[in-house]
Computed example of a mutant assay.
Amino acid sequence: MSAVGPLDAALTVPAPAVVEPGAYARLRELVAGGGAVALTGAGMSTASGIPDYRGPDGTRRVQPMQHGEFVGSAAARQRYWARAYVGWTRFASARPNPAHRAVADLERLGLVRHVITQNVDGLHQQAGSHRVLELHGTLDRVVCLDCGEVTTRDQVQEWLADANPGFLVAVDATSPVRPDGDVALPEAQVQAFRPPLCLVCGRDRLKPDVVFFGGSVDKGVVERAYTFVEQARVLLVLGSSLQVMSGYRFVRRAAREGIPVAVVTRGGTRGDAETTVGVDALVGDVLPALVADLRG
């Protein structure tokens, strides 16, 4: 499908009221030309009830699980799985919001070629995006760090329910879900929790198939992402402060290759110096209006 046509006419849908019109017009121009690759962050999913690690000022509000701690400490794995067991039902019940659906619409319009997401919630796929590269993996898959056995998160949840009867009844069901998909629990409840064991090797080193902070993204995934960026006409950064190098590196690569970078997110980003046009707004306020405009 071809990209949307010329831009010499007036915008068919006005820019959202919270957006500076000149920035919106430039964003529209870049996206309308097609060939975009979207790089998405946690700000895409906050309207779906999945919180961000950072506020609009870029300050980290939640201390995430660290890769080294999880791998090296049985107590850390017990704490993670106790919290994640409680939080999973609510995390998994999250549904795509208008921003996710707008990105899928842009793909259907032939304007977005690929989505590189830093999120681990699968909401882009649920919204209808087909060309999604999960940079940091997905929470709905679990892998054994010792024997490599892979299973589904739903299966692990069933094992945990069998091993911890009555555990969910004893916890505070109102505790908010955290960005890792877990909830905060009192230490006494964590200590009483029985973490999952691998059914193949019997070890307790089951890990959600995601990249925790301090871990490394698979090199093959990184190379695929670089290829997508280098072939893009524009890199469209959505809902990310770019504070983490795993996402910021693609902005740097685009700038080095002379590829425009358009950013839609609240607040400033680490990539402000490489940004061609920045729209300081919620993705849910901008993207649906942009899709309606480009369709018009």
Rank of each mutant, 00 (worst) to 15 (best):
T40R: 01
P260R: 03
P16V: 07
G34W: 05
A23L: 01
Y85N: 03
R79L: 10
N97L: 05
R253S: 04
G55F: 09
R266I: 05
A76V: 08
P288W: 04
C144V: 06
R224Q: 10
V286C: 08
M1R: 14
A9E: 08
H100I: 02
D180Q: 06
S45G: 06
A32M: 00
T151G: 14
L235P: 01
L290N: 01
G87M: 07
Q126M: 15
L106P: 04
A188D: 14
D146K: 08
M65C: 13
V132L: 13
G181K: 04
P186I: 09
V279N: 02
G34T: 01
A76K: 00
F91H: 05
F250L: 03
A163P: 04
T59L: 14
R77V: 07
L199Q: 13
A3K: 13
G55N: 13
G49K: 07
G68Y: 08
V71E: 01
A10I: 11
R83S: 15
G41M: 00
V229E: 01
R203V: 14
M44I: 10
F70K: 06
T12R: 12
L287H: 00
L287T: 02
G268V: 11
A82N: 06
R79H: 12
L109M: 11
A36K: 03
D285M: 03
A74N: 10
M245T: 13
V190R: 05
V277M: 05
P6H: 09
Q63S: 15
R270Q: 06
V264W: 03
G5P: 02
Y24W: 08
G215V: 10
P51F: 09
G49S: 10
T117K: 02
Y85I: 01
L160C: 09
R141P: 00
R194N: 14
D162K: 14
S2G: 13
P56R: 06
G55P: 07
Q63F: 13
V190H: 06
S241Q: 08
P64G: 11
L145F: 04
H136R: 03
Y53G: 09
G247I: 04
P56F: 06
A25T: 09
A38Y: 00
A94F: 01
V18R: 12
V143G: 03
R26N: 07
G5K: 08
S93F: 07
A17E: 09
A184Y: 10
G58C: 08
A292P: 05
L185K: 02
M245V: 14
